[in-house]
Simulated assay, not measured.
Amino acid sequence: MSVRGSGEISTNRKAGRDFHISDKFEAGIELKGTEVKSIRAGKINVSDAFARVEKGQVFLYGCNIQPWETAAEWFNHTAQRPRRLLLHKQEIFKLEQAMALQGCTLPLLRMYWKDRRVKVEIGIGKGKTHSDQRHDLKKKVELREAQREIQRFNRK
């Protein structure tokens, strides 16, 4: 858990594995008070979260923020509701073009605190094929083995 007001809330490691990320955007997110309390408590899952441009606005889908336990039922939020992202018009236009022309998706990369506000980082992602994923895994293994050999050599 991070210090209140700054730091990482959650990271979507699945997005880095499944997509080639070409560009990143920082966006504000429209939340209710009970959602902020749940985020502070760490009750959030962003592994399947993605954004979509609809009618000139960007909405975040698949972000699971658990309801706050002590809040009244009528005051609480639903866990999987679409949440509006706050971006400039030029950024929304770029995202819309990337989705329409290039066939890209907008996965949520991470959620973090910035000056007591919750911010999200979304990326323009092109899906990786299965062979791309295997190639990345092979590269990681080779890098890890090379680091081990360097450490072994430096110990002598």
Rank of each mutant, 00 (worst) to 15 (best):
T105A: 14
E91H: 11
A79W: 05
A146P: 01
I39F: 05
N45Y: 07
E26I: 06
A71R: 04
I150T: 13
F25G: 02
K138G: 07
V120Q: 01
R81F: 04
G28H: 00
G125K: 04
G56H: 07
T11L: 10
K55S: 10
S22M: 05
W113H: 09
V46D: 01
R17T: 14
E35I: 01
A49K: 02
L106D: 03
H77Q: 02
A98D: 03
T70H: 11
K94Q: 11
A146G: 05
S131Q: 14
Q97W: 00
I9R: 02
L95K: 01
Q147N: 08
L101Q: 08
Q57I: 05
L86M: 11
W113T: 09
G5C: 14
R134T: 04
C63I: 13
Y61D: 14
H20F: 14
L143F: 13
K37N: 07
Q90E: 15
E26A: 06
N12G: 08
R116S: 14
K114I: 00
R40E: 09
E30L: 10
L101N: 07
P67F: 03
S6W: 10
A79E: 15
F19W: 11
W68P: 04
Q80Y: 12
R83A: 01
V118A: 01
V58A: 10
V3F: 11
Q97K: 12
C63K: 05
S47I: 09
S6T: 12
H135E: 13
G125C: 06
R84P: 00
R144G: 10
V3Q: 10
A71Y: 08
K32T: 10
Q133P: 04
D23S: 10
G123E: 02
K138N: 12
E149G: 06
A49R: 04
V53Y: 02
Q57S: 15
D18A: 08
V36Q: 04
A79N: 08
I65A: 07
R110H: 11
L86E: 03
M111K: 00
R83T: 06
N154T: 12
N154W: 12
K32I: 02
V3I: 13
V120P: 05
F19A: 03
H130G: 05
F153V: 13
I65D: 05
D136T: 06
N12H: 12
T34Y: 08
I39Y: 02
S22N: 03
R155Q: 15
V53I: 09
Q147R: 10
L86P: 00
Q133C: 09
K119D: 02
F75P: 01
F93E: 11
L101E: 07
Y112H: 12
Y112G: 05
R117Q: 15
I29A: 02
V36R: 00
E149V: 08
A79M: 13
K32E: 06
L87P: 03
N76E: 07
T34H: 09
R4Q: 14
Q102M: 13
F25A: 00
N64Q: 15
E145W: 02
F93W: 12
A15T: 11
G42K: 11
P82N: 10
I29S: 00
R83P: 00
G7S: 08
E35L: 01
G127S: 14
P67R: 03
Q133Y: 00
F25I: 08
V36H: 02
G127R: 15
A41Y: 03
Q147E: 11
H77K: 01
Q102V: 12
F25P: 02
D48C: 08
K114T: 04
K140W: 05
S22Q: 05
L101Y: 01
L85V: 10
K114G: 04
G62L: 09
A41F: 01
K43P: 00
